[in-house]
Nucleic acid binder design. Structure first.
Length: 784
DNA sequence: TGTTAGAGCGCC
DNA sequence: AAAAGGCGCTCTAACA
């Protein structure tokens, strides 16, 4: 009799290396562990006041499935527990209620990363103790929360007979989800994906080893290149007013510099007080000496050193005296006065201060007030923008900002603008340094970039592989994102990824054009499947259909460098390649023509040729569209505009459900009275993208089982990462042969796996390519 | 001071 | 025919 075991941890919640409650930080541990085994009348829990008290989850032999919400988190905290290892060894499986909910909801955006509290009630559970959540939100550590309160939160209160809380809710959700999954025909698919979740848990646990000295070396080189480039760029910036610093990161600045425009900048400066019409000033008072009862500005008086009193030497009213610079002696030459009249400051005549000078507090104009104000500076510009580069933002004057992205800069290449190359180089360096190395953010006083996630000592970076964050059921990666590491032809970043083993290697295994294979599989198009079996070069095939020559001719002329036709036909192939990628995303003829520079009629010819060659693909796309439209239901989108839209779905043969929403119709349909339409591009792409992702994930599950079986090849090979159609491994050469053979066999066994799980008859191969190297940059294709 | 939208760009 | 799909990170600019 096999049973389920629901469990959950409340862990110490320090953030470390961008990871919330990181299981890889030694200051975090399981503060409270709760569980309920199938058949138990109530939940159980253990409380561990310190890390030293911590005990592992006990998993009885009759337990066959572990259940939890966001289960990867709880698994990582005990990933090396012998009990858990033994559990997997005997074939134990998992069910993550967060992941299952996301799949059951057809990956609807509202179901991404969904919190338990948001679904507990719909499965008959109840909301949990708010006070605990409030304390976390207020920044308390889990260990600072009252033990009883925490346990109430975890397993329910005494009034709830200790059969609620996180654990009780999870059980109810699990049982409800099983029913839903059976009804929707999604049970097998969910189970298979759960094994994929185990694989990514293993990958997160293993992480990637970073060659920190190499990274530091590269960084130094890049930083000095950056300094040189920025120095060069400086000379192209016109003289700027104080307070405005040109920022090469700012799209506004770049657009204004290149195309002309007004940059708004802020500076602290004086301003006119509307009440007085003069510059605003601060209030101030001064002690002024009194002369005959009238206060006089001390600046106009002199201090008598002996008495400490102020005195004034009044000038002759007739204009004589100091003002004319004349020496005064005796009488004034303009009149009969005796030159200067010295008057002394008033003094107290009695009391304590008798004899001391009298003063009065007088309001005087204080310092000028300043405030941060907008200033404007107009750049003349170097060239005129193409209107199609116009963006949504405006400059200081309200004129349009134009895009200065890579595409535009390339297009500007033919115009004589001297700094474009340096600017592009700077952008590339800043992107690499800021995203994949490390860069100090002056404003936030914080470091940015992938290397900030590297653990000290081990130099391992543990990324997150997220299962519930996309609408297509693909995975995503974050903190850091290890699914967008620049390829070898873009940057040398991949050199940083090395083996953690002494003398070890890295292995990357890719599916060859997975999405084309999936397109063939889903559509069942006879020609496409045959071409996949024949391993034709699809780009040459498209060229042959487009230029009306045979496939063999096209292939020779496109690929044989010695052929006289090669230079011309190579370009055809490149265009066909771009065409096929664009087409996969559903782009129309217009856009492809614009993007490739091919005449629109040529693009239309290619599209037509495609449809004649692979009619099954069009039929498949049409059938998805029909299905979605047929089952669509209206809903009011309050988050958007409160208007009525529709949502429909299409279910793949594996059981995966894709949901689609409608959007405001484009103008040409609006004129015909249509208010909302589904996006044909989404409907074409989701099934292919999603099924490709799904296949990789279930294969990851198979790989995980093999790694469990072999104890990670005796501890000499590790699964590390996956990027949609590829898998990364870290291994010792000792096990290379066995590892490569297994990985290739398992990854290429897609048709067998799909037959076994879903009784699908798949007649296309899923070939993979293996590459090995000392790092993920310098790798060689290997053949087995 | 922190949040958010937009742009840009890395990957598949 | 007509609407280029999916992510996450960094940066700026605007706003509360």
């Amino acid at each position: 009799m096999s049973k389920y075991l629901v469990f959950d941890r409340e862990t110490e919640n320090h953030e470390h290396r961008k990871r919330f409650s990181s299981p890889f930080y030694d200051k975090n541990w399981t503060v409270a562990l709760g569980w309920k085994k199938q058949g138990d009348k109530q939940c159980s829990a253990l409380y561990f006041p310190t890390k030293e008290d911590e005990k592992p989850l006990q998993i009885d032999k009759d337990v066959s499935i572990l259940v939890g919400h966001n289960l990867k988190f709880d698994l990582l905290f005990g990933w090396e527990d012998p009990a858990l290892k033994a559990f997997f060894k005997r074939g134990g499986r998992i069910w993550c209620t967060q992941y299952a909910e996301y799949l059951l909801e057809g990956m609807h955006p509202d179901s991404h990363m969904i919190a338990m509290d948001q679904i507990a009630e719909k499965y008959g559970g109840r909301k949990k103790v708010d006070a605990v959540k409030a304390m976390w939100e207020a920044g308390f550590l889990t260990s600072q929360i009252d033990k009883d309160m925490l346990l109430d939160y975890l397993i329910g209160t005494k009034e709830e007979k200790r059969n609620s809380g996180d654990i009780g809710n999870t059980e109810l959700i699990f049982l409800g989800q099983i029913k839903r999954a059976m009804k929707l025909g999604m049970m097998t698919m969910i189970q298979a994906r759960m094994d994929g979740l185990l694989a990514t848990t293993e990958m997160e646990f293993n992480g990637l080893k970073i060659d920190v000295p190499e990274a530091a070396r590269r960084m130094k080189i890049m930083e000095s290149e950056l300094a040189i480039t920025e120095k060069e760029l400086e000379s192209y910036i016109p003289e700027l007013p104080v307070g405005l610093t040109f920022n090469w990161n700012s799209n506004t600045h770049k657009s204004c510099l290149i195309f002309g425009g007004t940059v708004k900048y802020k500076k602290s400066a004086r301003y006119i007080d509307p009440k007085t019409g003069k510059y605003a000033r601060k209030k101030a008072t001064e002690e002024w000496p009194l002369f005959d009862g009238e206060p006089v500005d001390p600046k106009e008086a002199t201090i008598d050193k002996d008495s400490g009193l102020y005195f004034i030497e009044d000038n002759c009213e007739q204009g004589g005296g100091y003002t004319c610079g004349m020496e005064i002696s005796g009488s004034c030459e303009y009149c009969s006065c005796t030159g200067l009249d010295t008057r002394y400051q008033d003094v107290f005549t009695s009391g304590k201060k008798k004899g001391a000078g009298r003063f009065k507090k007088v309001d005087v104009p204080g310092e000028f007030k300043t405030k941060i104000q907008d200033f404007f500076f107009e750049f003349p510009g170097y060239t005129t923008p193409d209107p199609k580069w116009q963006g949504a933002l405006t400059d200081g004057q309200g004129d349009s900002i134009y895009s200065t992205n890579d595409e535009v800069i390339t297009e500007l290449g033919s115009r004589d603008i001297p700094f474009l190359k340096a600017m592009a180089k700077r952008s590339a360096l800043v992107k690499d340094l800021g995203t994949y190395y490390v860069r100090y953010d002056d404003k936030k006083k914080d470091y940015k970039g992938m290397l900030t996630c590297v653990l000290p000592g081990t130099h391992i970076v543990n990324h997150s592989l997220n299962h519930t964050n996309t609408v297509t059921s693909r995975l995503s990666s974050s903190n850091p994102n290890l699914q967008n590491i620049p390829r070898g032809d873009t940057s040398e970043v991949k050199k940083m990824f090395i083996s953690r083993f002494d003398g070890g290697k890295m292995l990357e295994v890719d599916y060859s054009q997975l999405e084309v294979v999936v397109q063939g599989m889903l559509s069942g198009d006879k020609n496409l499947c045959q071409d996949l079996r024949d391993k034709v070069d699809f780009h040459c095939k498209r060229v042959s259909a487009w230029k009306k020559v045979t496939y063999d001719e096209a292939k020779k002329w496109c690929k044989d460098e010695k052929d006289p036709k090669y230079p011309e036909w190579k370009v055809y192939r490149t265009n066909a390649k771009v065409f096929s990628f664009q087409r996969a995303y559903g782009a129309g003829a217009n856009l492809i023509s614009q993007y490739t520079g091919m005449p629109i009629d040529d693009v239309k010819d290619l599209i037509e040729a495609e449809e004649i060659m692979y009619p099954g693909v069009t039929e498949f796309n049409d059938s998805v569209e029909k299905t979605v439209k047929r089952n669509a239901q209206a809903f009011k989108d309050w988050a958007r505009d409160g208007k009525v839209y529709r949502r429909g779905h299409w279910q793949a043969p594996t059981g995966t459900m894709y949901t689609f929403r409608s959007y405001d119709a484009p103008d040409y349909l609006r004129e015909k009275g249509v208010t909302d339409t589904f996006m044909p591009t989404e409907m074409k792409n989701y099934p292919v993208q999603g099924t490709g992702g799904e296949i990789v994930q279930i294969i990851l599950g198979r790989l995980f089982r093999r790694f469990v079986e072999t104890d990670n090849y005796g501890g000499l090979a590790l699964m590390c990462n996956t990027v949609h159609d590829c898998v990364w491994f870290d291994f010792m050469p000792d096990v290379q042969e066995e590892l490569c053979r297994d990985v290739k066999e398992i990854m290429e066994s897609v048709p067998e796996v799909l037959k076994e799980l879903y009784d699908m008859d798949v007649d296309v191969p899923f070939p993979v390519e293996l590459e090995i190297g000392d790092n993920l940059y310098d790798k060689q294709v290997i053949h087995i």
